[in-house]
Computed example of a mutant assay.
Amino acid sequence: DGLGLLFALGLASNLLLYVYLLPYAVPTYPSLMSSAFTTLLIAGVVLFSWSARRTTLVGVLICAGFALVGAKLGQQGLPMAPFVSTLCWVAIGAALAVACARVLGRFRTGLIQRQDELAALSTRLISVQEEQLRRLSRELHDELGQSLTAVSSYLWLLERKLPPDLGELRTRAGEARHLVAKTLGEMRELSQLLRPPGLDLYGLAGSLEAHLEAFRGRHQIATKYTAEGLPERLPEEIETAVYRIIQEALTNVARHAHAKRVWVGLTARGDELRLEVRDDGVGLPADNGASRPSGIGLIGIRERVRALGGTVSLSSGPGGGACLRASVPMPREGGGAPTASGANS
């Protein structure tokens, strides 16, 4: 901002110097200067987002400088009428630039306000979503899980008490019990995906290790996890956001990357937490090289990072593979002593 102001003032001074040294290089030279000064002021408003106050200050300085140059040239015997008329046009141009600054300032203020409202709404929706997932996970585990366990027990008792001459019915009861057990296992896995209880009980590091172990067994993709300087516990919103970001990134790896190995890293340095998810898969599509990679999962990742005031980037190397990097601010009083850990498989 300061550099833009210096550039504009320097250019205006340069133009005034040309007017002083070559007042009539062409017959309409002073009038051409009024257009140049007006363009300079409007460019400052549009390109550098000058406020009306700053535009007024620069406009007053330009008018004062032009009047001073005209007075000096008048003392040298040059006619003053062209400079007076040009000064009037410069003043009109400055007033027009100030009006533009006020209009654009209102537009920018409204846009920033709406962006803040959208960010607050996004944060609220994420919070509500996490609460709903937590409630659904708890209901699946506690209520539906207990019901399925009871059904499995009843089927086991039925299987045990059936007489030997009803062997086919006993076989059917055993198959039903195995089906209930399979459903119970899948339901518990779904409950873990919705909201892992270890995230609330043991923190981010333990939950990620368990998730990576399950990911490795489910998709047959080797994983490596490292954590450097990570506190024992972080604020709940940071733990939840980082877990969800890595969870979504691993889901994308399993769906699209065709990778054989994935690396997950967390690094806490000072008041910043950095995460990286990298794979050795096919990388990003070629058409994403010039455009911003998009998708529901990536949009969710960006919204979670933005809600924490962080930054996120997705890149692909020339040799293949994709790398997701994110950085979020971390309070210094995060609690617990820093730890360093690593897991390979």
Rank of each mutant, 00 (worst) to 15 (best):
S51Q: 07
L5C: 05
A268I: 03
L157T: 08
M330Y: 08
V151C: 07
L73G: 03
P329E: 02
I299P: 00
F37I: 04
F37Q: 04
T28W: 12
I246Y: 02
S137N: 06
P196W: 09
L22W: 05
L11R: 10
E333Q: 13
I296P: 02
W263C: 05
L9K: 08
E159I: 00
P23H: 03
E131C: 03
R170F: 00
L6G: 04
Y24N: 09
A43E: 02
V312I: 14
T311Y: 10
F215P: 09
T149C: 08
V277Y: 02
E159V: 05
L324N: 02
Q76H: 07
M187T: 03
L298D: 11
L275Y: 03
G198M: 07
R306I: 04
R114W: 15
L155K: 05
L184I: 00
D165N: 10
D116N: 15
W89Y: 15
V128D: 12
S49G: 06
P164I: 08
V312C: 15
L144M: 15
Q129C: 01
G283R: 08
E189D: 12
M330R: 12
L41S: 06
V242R: 09
S345F: 12
K72G: 15
A150L: 13
L21G: 04
V45T: 07
S294R: 11
P196E: 05
M187W: 01
S31D: 14
L284K: 07
V128Y: 03
L96C: 08
V277M: 06
F48W: 06
E303R: 12
D1C: 07
G342P: 00
